[in-house]
Amino acid sequence: MPEFVIETRGLRKSFRTRHGRQTAVDGLDLAVPAGGVHGFLGPNGSGKTTTIRMVLGLARADAGTVRLFGAEVPKSLPSVLGRVGAVVEQPRLFPGITGRRNLQVLARSINQDDRRVDAALAAVGLTDRAGDRYKAYSLGMKQRLAIAATLLKQPDLLVLDEPTNGLDPAGIREIRDLIRALAADGTTVLISSHILAEVQQVCDSVSIIGRGRLLAGGSVAEVLRSTTRPSEVRVRVPDPAAAAELLQGNGLTSRPDGELLLVGGAAEPAQITRLLAERGIYLSELTPVSADLESVFLQITEGEGL
């Protein structure tokens, strides 16, 4: 297997709109490593779905190259498509037929039998509702059936575009567990999502895009380390206003966070406790705030004016 399951170089795509041509993807260089779970992040309209559609051959690129498992897309897509399962945007199956029949139709197109259908339905917990018509499903059930459809191929790469949309907390947890299980079995999973806490829980690596360009990428740890925002601590004090004035007077930053204060700029937490104690202000709580993907994402996208 090549080092990267998906590679794009200088990928470009624009659409004709009423206001002229609008660039959706603008010279995107993307590399999704083989193995693990990769998050594909970006604000709404940043070009995530358009990129995924070009990778899967549903849309043509204006310029640039796409490689899937090393094969050129769309020219050699048929040779590798059997290794890829994908749900792009919303789940889209046949509304008038049952969930099981939907999967049977797709399974037969790749010469799979009903045993695979049963296994896929069981994997997403839809066995009991498989006989219901698709259009009677809730959005969460449709999402799960679409994921079941991707499993029919037993894919080496699973592409999920906003996979937890419409799912309740239990459903989100099921999908997260499923993604982890698939990744543990050696499937590479690419998740496009805007729920960053969700992504951080399951992803090994991420790519952050904005306005169709790659803004940051790498392992989650690398991206978190790349933040320039200083580490902060969250403190609870009886008089936040007095504490804030004191801390700012000593060169630290502080901003309210509900009833608490977020304090930054201290070399170590002890500096804060000492300064406050010297003025008779005693802490009842101090919690280090570590950078998370959301803050890094916001910092990067805000920096780009997105």
Binding site: L81, P95, S109, K153
Partner: peptide, 18 residues
């Protein structure tokens, strides 16, 4: 028409790209 209105044509092309 049903393939296009339901969007299922996209799903089909993810199983047979030719």
């Amino acid at each position: 028409g049903a393939d296009w209105s339901s969007g299922s044509i996209g799903t089909q092309l993810l199983f047979e790209s030719r």
